[in-house]
């Protein structure tokens, strides 16, 4: 049974009385198998958040159906196995980080020692143990995203839905969040995320869908979508120039392939930034 099944979802929003309704989502179908990380990418206003809200029953589809592990999204019990991190999440200012997680845990029926352990475990997972007893009002953007992620995971759902999890977060925080997503994947949790930050999606997703003006314009396995089928990459370390010249000559002599270029690959600015700020050799 797929973790997520969205079939021919259409969502119209009424704008004003005179004008015709705005079609935010137009015949979108997405299937996500259990254990996959699916990235929905598209520019702002293309219908990503609306698709996710329909899947969570927060908006009612104009037509089409959504289900989570086979349960209809319009029913409350479909939400038992899902966690949601909304776009720019904000939590109750008067609660501390630990109280926030306790509150959401209790809503899911956890209590007692189980809840306590779960809260500590989650705070450790999202690296917020130091801020455990601080009020949410004083949290930074990155911390809010991480407590939001912890909140989404509180009842150990098999599916998490993340709406722009790294938007507005600095590179370090964004790295942490991506590492968390990879950790979730390793644990076999299905992740459905959306973003307009393409490189980040590229790094964590197995499957991607590109949505534009409410329509899915392209979808499939990430590796298949971005592979350049007729090219092959060879990366060498400490290669002397003579060796490179020799290989180039070999390729030319063989006649069965074309030598395109050689040179030094560039690290990304992000990697440079992370190396300089954290000493991390990633």
């Amino acid at each position: 049974m797929p973790a997520v099944e969205i079939r021919h979802l259409v969502k119209d929003f009424k704008t004003s009385l005179k004008r015709q309704p705005l079609r935010a989502v137009d015949d979108v179908s997405i299937t996500i198998e259990a254990g996959e990380v699916y990235g929905l990418i598209g520019p702002n206003g293309s219908g990503k958040s609306t698709t996710m809200k329909a899947l969570l029953g927060l908006v009612v589809p104009t037509s089409g159906t959504c289900s989570i592990f086979g349960k209809d999204s319009l029913k409350v019990d479909s939400r038992e196995d899902v966690g949601f991190l909304p776009e720019n999440p904000y939590f109750y200012k008067h609660l501390t980080g630990a109280e926030t997680l306790e509150f959401y845990g209790k809503l899911c029926g956890l209590r007692g020692a189980v809840l306590k352990d779960r809260v500590s475990e989650l705070l450790a997972l999202v690296d917020l143990e130091g801020a455990r007893d601080r009020r949410i009002a004083g949290y930074s953007k990155g911390m809010l995203q991480r407590i939001g992620l912890a909140q989404a995971l509180v009842q150990e759902p098999r599916l998490v839905i993340l709406d722009e999890p790294t938007a507005g977060v600095d590179p370090l925080g964004s790295r942490q969040i991506r590492d968390l997503i990879l950790k979730l994947r390793d644990r076999g949790i299905t992740v459905f995320l959306c973003s307009h930050l393409l490189e980040q999606v590229q790094e964590v997703c197995d499957q991607v869908g590109i949505i534009f003006k409410g329509k899915i314009v392209k979808s499939g396995r990430l590796q298949d979508l971005i592979a350049i089928e007729d090219q092959t990459e060879i990366i060498l370390k400490d290669a002397p120039p003579e060796l490179v010249a020799e290989i180039e000559a070999l390729v030319k002599r063989s006649g069965s392939a074309e030598w395109l270029r050689s040179g030094k690959p560039r690290t990304t600015l992000e990697r440079l930034f992370l190396r300089e700020t954290s000493g991390d050799e990633s």
């Binding site: 809200k53 969570l56 029953g57 927060l58 409350v76 019990d77 939400r79 038992e80 899902v82 966690g83 949601f84 909304p86 776009e87 720019n88 999440p89 904000y90 939590f91 109750y92 959401y104 809503l107 899911c108 939001g148 909140q151 989404a152 009842q155 839905i161």
Partner: peptide, 14 residues
């Protein structure tokens, strides 16, 4: 306004 409602209704809360 704070969108905390999303996080609550996204839990199994009628």
């Amino acid at each position: 306004e704070d969108r905390t409602l999303y996080t609550i209704l996204a839990k199994p809360v009628p």
